[in-house]
């Protein structure tokens, strides 16, 4: 994939944050040391080739009332993992969905989803709907009762 040092500088800065000022890309251009038009052109390119998956705001969902979240772990027959994982991912309430190893005798749930909602009840009812949709009845709902850390992966360049 072709990506030069200027692209890397742009990615490094923008994964940390773009200032919310009158001309954000002018400000970014100053930080990188190139023109605004060049920044815009490069960002568009990086977005179109998919290196940038998304350029947008992150929101603190708690501030808009989405206060409940749970990890819901599903026990899915291995041969159905792909299809169930894909199906559950199509719901907007599911923000994360991963297949994971099992540890026989100790941990048998192999599909992990994170579900957000306005209340415990709504998260529970979403989990129930998902269960009905995918036909997996064996699942665990683990609500969070404390957030100790929440950051994002920083990609090294």
């Amino acid at each position: 994939m072709d990506k030069d040092e200027i692209d890397q500088a742009i990615l490094n800065i923008t994964q940390e944050g773009i200032p919310l000022v009158e001309e954000p890309f002018e400000e970014l251009a100053k930080q990188v040391g190139i023109s605004r038009d060049e920044v815009i052109r490069r960002l568009k390119r990086l977005r179109s080739i998919g290196v940038i998956k998304r350029l947008g705001i992150s929101v603190n969902q708690r501030k808009v009332g989405i206060v409940a979240n749970a990890v819901v772990a599903w026990k899915v027959p291995e041969e159905q993992l792909e299809s169930v994982g894909t199906l559950l991912s199509s719901y907007t309430e599911v923000t994360h969905s991963y297949g994971r190893v099992t540890i026989p005798g100790k941990w048998e749930h192999n599909l992990f989803t994170v579900i957000h909602g306005y209340s415990r009840e709504s998260v529970e009812s979403i989990a129930k709907q998902l269960s009905e949709a995918c036909g997996i009845m064996d699942y665990l709902v683990m609500f969070s009762n404390g957030q100790f850390k929440r950051t994002s992966v920083k990609h090294p360049f």
Binding site: T14, K53, L55, F112
Partner: peptide, 23 residues
Amino acid sequence: DGVIRKLRTILDAQKLGSCSSTL
């Protein structure tokens, strides 16, 4: 008000080389 955390790019880990993870 804290509704917007920040404006940023989200990069495609797969396109940037290998990351591995566990829970």
